[in-house]
Each structure stands twice: as structure tokens, then as C-alpha cells.
């Protein structure tokens, strides 16, 4: 506990002593984490958007004309097995005609030319709203049903959400890729800053070694310093993310209403902020451990 307290004080003193280099370092970590945060935030909003979108999803499967009643019942039973389903309605060809006439009575003369109902029978499905990751599951479920031999065609209002999901996937991958590169850049920079700090305090380290300090006693303050730097970077990135999200909608005219609908620009989920702090600390820890390993090896 005493060592932790001393190490913390040492780390803060070191950060303050080499202000320029440490603040530059903090800036780079913050930039890395801010990039990670922005991509995370956009990805999160797209996820929420698609989830909200799926609340009103309905799918109508139109059946082929020569389908037997037994096959229809089997298909309905299969659909009912899914936990995603809230309601399922089968409409025969005659029911479809009745519905049409109820809605468009003035078009009765067109139907009078047909011997049988020209409308196909259909299965209408309404989905539950409380399932997590619903959109992806619904898309996969619909694609599965569509493969059935008795289905002629489908009408689903989820195609747009499907595209949004693709965009989300693309943004996530881009975010991971960019953050990954910046992650390594940050590690390299903190590694060198810690190395400089170690060299700056080489005389002190030598003295500690001569008087019988353990390696751990000497290393610990530098590890704390790295972790603290990363944590501070995470805090700054989180703060900048909150400020950006709050300010962008007020000052940017170019953000269309559609974008505003997708990205809320209001609340940043706590998990994103915690993720920034976590990754910041990890970056700092890895860098300082690498630096120390090299120093003690030499």
C-alpha cells in the first residue's frame, strides 16, 4: 500500500516534471482513444437504430398457387416454433379477395372477370419487440423461411435496416482497424517516453540497485506511471467525446435530419467511457512493461 502510494506520487511528479513530452504523449493517447470512442459511439447508435426499427417489422410471405393445405399447416407450425414470433396470421386466397374488396369496393368489377380469387394466399408474421439483437435474428429467420418450396415471394419492411446493419459492420471494422494502428502508435510513443524517464532517472535506479532494492520495487513506479498516463488519456478522450457529441449538433448545419435520427447526439453509454479508460490503462501498462523489460535486459 505504501509502495503504491509512493509510486503514485512518483508517477505524478514525473509527469509534471517532463511536462512537454508527457503532455504530447497524453495528446496522442487521447487522440487514439477518441477515435476508438467515436467509432464505438457511431456503431452503438446504428445498433440502437436498427433495434428500434425492428419494432415495427412485419413480414408477409406469399404462397404458391398449387400449395396443399397440409404443406401450409406444416410451414405455419414450423414458424410458430420460433421465439421471435409474436403473431402469425394465415390468409387464404378468398380471405385476401374479401380484404381487397373491403378496402377497394369500387374495383369489384375487375375481380368479377376472374373465376377464382386472383390473390395468393399468404402468411403474415409480426415479431416480438423485446428480443436483444432482434434485427439480425429476424433477417436470418426471414431468409430461412424464404427458402421453403411453398413460398412464392415475400414482402418485408426490413431491407433498409439490413443496409444499416451492413454500414454498422463496415464502421466497426474500420474503427477497429484505425484504432488498432493508433493503438500501436500510442504504445510505441509511451514506450519511448517511459524509456526517456528511465534514462533520466538512471542514477537513482543505479543507487536503488546498489542498496538492495528488488527489481519489482524499481519497476513498480514506472508501471504505475504508464498506467496513469493511459488512464488520463482515456479520461481526456472521454471528456472530448462528451463535448463533441454535445457541440456537433448545435454548430453543424451539414448534419442532415436523417443522420440526426440515426445518431442521437445526446447520451454516451457508460460502457463506451469505461472501454476508453480500460484501453487507455492497457496501452500504458503494455508500453511501460516493454520499456522496463528492455532496460532491465540491458
Amino acid at each position: 500500500m505504501d509502495l503504491l502510494k509512493k509510486s503514485l506520487i512518483n508517477a505524478i511528479n514525473n509527469i509534471l516534471r517532463n511536462k512537454l513530452i508527457n503532455f504530447l504523449c497524453l495528446g496522442i493517447i487521447s487522440f487514439t482513444l477518441l477515435t476508438l470512442g467515436i467509432f464505438n459511439y457511431i456503431s452503438y447508435n446504428l445498433e440502437i437504430f436498427t433495434q428500434n426499427f425492428s419494432k415495427n417489422v412485419e413480414a408477409i410471405f406469399y404462397l404458391k398457387n398449387d400449395v396443399k393445405e397440409k404443406e401450409i399447416k406444416a410451414q405455419i407450425s414450423k414458424i410458430k416454433e420460433s421465439l421471435l414470433i409474436d403473431e402469425i396470421i394465415y390468409k387464404s386466397r378468398d380471405e385476401a379477395e374479401t380484404n381487397f374488396l373491403a378496402q377497394f369496393p369500387e374495383l369489384r368489377y375487375i375481380l368479377s372477370e376472374f373465376d377464382k380469387s386472383p390473390f395468393p394466399s399468404s402468411i403474415e408474421i409480426k415479431f416480438k419487440q423485446k428480443e436483444s439483437n432482434l434485427t439480425t435474428k429476424i433477417i436470418s429467420f426471414i431468409e430461412d423461411i424464404e427458402k421453403s418450396d411453398i413460398i412464392e415471394s415475400k414482402q418485408v419492411n426490413i431491407d433498409w435496416a439490413k443496409k444499416v446493419l451492413y454500414i454498422k459492420k463496415f464502421i466497426s471494422i474500420t474503427g477497429i482497424f484505425l484504432s488498432g494502428i493508433l493503438f500501436f502508435v500510442s504504445i510505441f510513443i509511451i514506450y519511448n517516453v517511459i524509456k526517456l524517464n528511465i534514462l533520466y532517472r538512471k542514477e537513482e535506479i543505479d543507487i536503488l540497485q546498489f542498496v538492495g532494492a528488488t527489481d519489482w520495487y524499481i519497476k513498480f513506479p514506472f508501471i504505475i506511471e504508464g498506467a496513469l498516463m493511459g488512464l488520463l488519456g482515456g479520461l481526456i478522450a472521454g471528456f472530448l467525446l462528451i463535448i463533441s457529441i454535445k457541440l456537433i449538433p448545435s454548430y453543424s448545419d451539414f448534419i442532415s435530419n436523417m443522420l440526426k435520427e440515426i445518431i442521437s447526439f445526446k447520451k454516451i453509454p457508460l460502457k463506451i467511457l469505461i472501454r476508453l479508460l480500460f484501453f487507455g490503462t492497457i496501452i500504458g501498462l503494455i508500453s511501460s512493461l516493454f520499456s522496463l523489460k528492455k532496460f532491465f535486459k540491458n
Partner: peptide, 22 residues
């Protein structure tokens, strides 16, 4: 071994010509 070197150093007090003080 390097990691146990502190045990030896604790048996020895070293005084340098250039003092090596903080």
C-alpha cells in the same frame, strides 16, 4: 540470478568516490 541480486547487495554497503547521492 539477477532477480536475487538484491540479497547480495543488502549484505554490502558501498561508498563511491563521487558519493552517488540523490
Amino acid at each position: 540470478p539477477r532477480k536475487k541480486l538484491y540479497r547480495l547487495r543488502r549484505k554490502i554497503g558501498i561508498v563511491f568516490q563521487d558519493f552517488k547521492l540523490l
